[in-house]
């Protein structure tokens, strides 16, 4: 069988790739894609721990992952709406240029 830590290592690598995308990319849509990658990595972790340690007794892991899915969907819908709205009024989606709130 596959040991549990294989899944954990994979999700750690995916999480750090997402982290790199979030810090490095200048396009806000690409930053959102990095966040999606990190959420997916977290979901792998949740499901792996649940499957290996608690699958016989409860459904906590699956429900938690489903809530994460709902949060991700809500976040993408609002996030892309905000990006498109910013693009319409500012003509840019570069994270560095969207600095209206900067004092």
């Amino acid at each position: 069988m596959i040991p549990l830590y294989w899944f954990l290592v994979l999700s750690a690598i995916l999480f750090c790739i997402g982290l790199y995308a979030v810090i490095t990319r200048r396009n806000t849509i690409a930053i959102l894609m990095g966040i999606e990658l990190m959420l997916n990595a977290a979901n792998i972790n949740l499901i792996a721990f649940w499957r290996y340690l608690y699958a016989g007794s409860n459904l906590d892991g699956v429900i938690f992952a489903l809530i994460v899915f709902a949060a991700a969907a809500a976040e993408v819908a609002v996030g892309l709406g905000l990006i498109l709205s910013a693009y319409r009024s500012k003509e840019t989606i570069v994270a560095n240029d969207l600095d209206t709130l900067k004092g």
Partner: peptide, 11 residues
Amino acid sequence: ALTSTLAGGQQ
């Protein structure tokens, strides 16, 4: 726990 195998019960 890291090397434990799958707990029983198909989802």
